[in-house]
């Protein structure tokens, strides 16, 4: 870690809604139960509620585990009003990425110049980093290879296909799902174009 995580973590220390994460999890699990069971009578719903309660009890300890120092592991900071803007953007990125792969595959000469890019990104929330890794894989021309603390290693089909990640627009989309962020998120970018340098 280049800078101490203290300043960013301070924002999340006071938990405004301590039950919000549990409530979201329980709601999602209950929806899953109702859809998968397909019966809506009293017996099935009660059984479902008991099962959801047991799963929530078992899950309660997992949420307190910290994998890396300075992580904030709460999904309860997710802001749904930003999710509504985020999902259409994500859908368009997925379509664009697939079209790029399709054009590269179907092109007879296959115009690719693969590069590996290493960078650090400042996203203190674990969920945000997981989401960012998945979004990198789904968006045009890039695949996540490895995530260690805040250091990402990605593989790009072309060097310029990683430009939206390097200039920080893509991490900003993810960060805005959780909190307002104005500073530069991506630092110490390193582009590797020969496998001997790895």
């Amino acid at each position: 870690m280049t800078d101490s995580p203290g300043t960013t973590i301070k924002k999340f220390e006071q938990r405004e809604h301590p039950w919000r994460g549990v409530a979201m999890q329980g709601f999602a699990l209950m929806c899953l139960w109702l859809v998968l069971s397909g019966h809506f009578d009293f017996f099935h719903i009660t059984t479902g509620a008991i099962c959801v309660g047991i799963v929530l009890l078992l899950n309660a300890r997992i949420s307190s585990v910290q994998f890396f120092q300075g992580d904030v592991s709460e999904w309860e900071h997710l802001r749904f009003e930003h999710l509504l803007r985020f999902l259409p953007w994500l859908a368009w990125e997925i379509v664009e990425g697939s079209i790029q792969v399709a054009s590269a595959v179907l092109h007879p000469k296959m115009p690719i110049e693969p590069a590996v890019i290493r960078f650090r990104v400042k996203l203190p929330i674990v969920g945000a980093r997981v989401l960012f890794g998945n979004v990198i894989t789904l968006t045009p021309g890039t695949v996540t290879l490895s995530i260690t603390e805040d250091e990402f290693l990605i593989h790009a089909l072309r060097r310029k296909s990683a430009s939206t990640i390097i200039d920080g627009t893509m991490p900003r989309w993810i960060a805005q799902l959780f909190y307002d962020e104005d500073e530069q998120l991506v630092t110490s970018v390193e582009i590797i174009e020969s496998s001997k340098e790895m």
């Binding site: 379509v95 697939s98 792969v101 595959v105 789904l138 593989h155």
Partner: peptide
């Protein structure tokens, strides 16, 4: 793409994006 791409890491692009969409 999984058959045509030259190495393992480029084949990941075909699996990660094309399959998902």
């Amino acid at each position: 793409g999984i058959v045509r791409f030259p190495d393992f890491y480029t084949r990941l692009h075909a699996m990660g994006k094309g399959d998902t969409l």
